[in-house]
């Protein structure tokens, strides 16, 4: 008897609490920046495609829903020829983002991806690539890496000395 009354009292008190239900979709909920939703591919601060087609996100993915193919431009800069995520399989675990050495692949606070056709959940690079750097504004992998690409010669990466002149080594 007493416990029933206490329950009634508690329920009554809830009428004065702050409401948590939001009127979605008219009202959008707050999602933290690190919320794990729709996956995007970002660009580096210079506007270049960030993904270097290293396949690490693909191998980290527990449901194997990322497939890509690496290719290179004439200057040796590597990028994905195609990059596909099958969102009908994706479990939004964020392992791909964790594995990515270039901050290219990022999960975003957006979950509005529902489709009537499952086939429409297959996203290609055009659907994934955004125009900015996403959550990580500063980083450009190519400025750190040792390979030469267009606009960055050997020895011009961070913390590098000028390349050794082979002639100084010849007898």
């Amino acid at each position: 008897m007493l416990s029933a009354l206490r329950t009634l009292w508690n329920v009554f008190l809830h009428m004065f609490r702050k409401r948590v239900t939001v009127q979605y979709p008219e009202q959008k909920p707050y999602l933290a920046p690190r919320w794990r939703g729709r996956i995007i591919l970002s660009r580096d601060p210079d506007g270049g495609e960030r993904c270097v087609a290293c396949y690490l996100c693909a191998v980290a993915c527990p449901v194997d829903c990322i497939a890509l193919q690496a290719t290179e431009d004439q200057t040796g800069r590597r990028y994905p020829e195609f990059f596909r995520i099958n969102f009908s399989r994706c479990i939004f675990c964020g392992y791909c983002e964790e594995a990515c050495p270039t901050y290219a692949i990022q999960l975003t606070p957006d979950f509005e991806m529902a489709e009537y056709e499952r086939q429409n959940l297959v996203y290609e690079k055009e659907d994934l690539l955004i125009d900015g750097p996403g959550k990580y504004p500063g980083y450009n992998f190519w400025r750190v890496a040792g390979v030469k690409i267009g606009g960055k010669d050997k020895g011009e990466a961070q913390n590098e000395t000028a390349p050794v002149d082979l002639h100084t080594l010849l007898p």
Partner: peptide
């Protein structure tokens, strides 16, 4: 081996 559920998804 990766990409099993995406390599032919197109």
């Amino acid at each position: 081996y990766s990409g099993r559920t995406a390599k032919l998804a197109q």
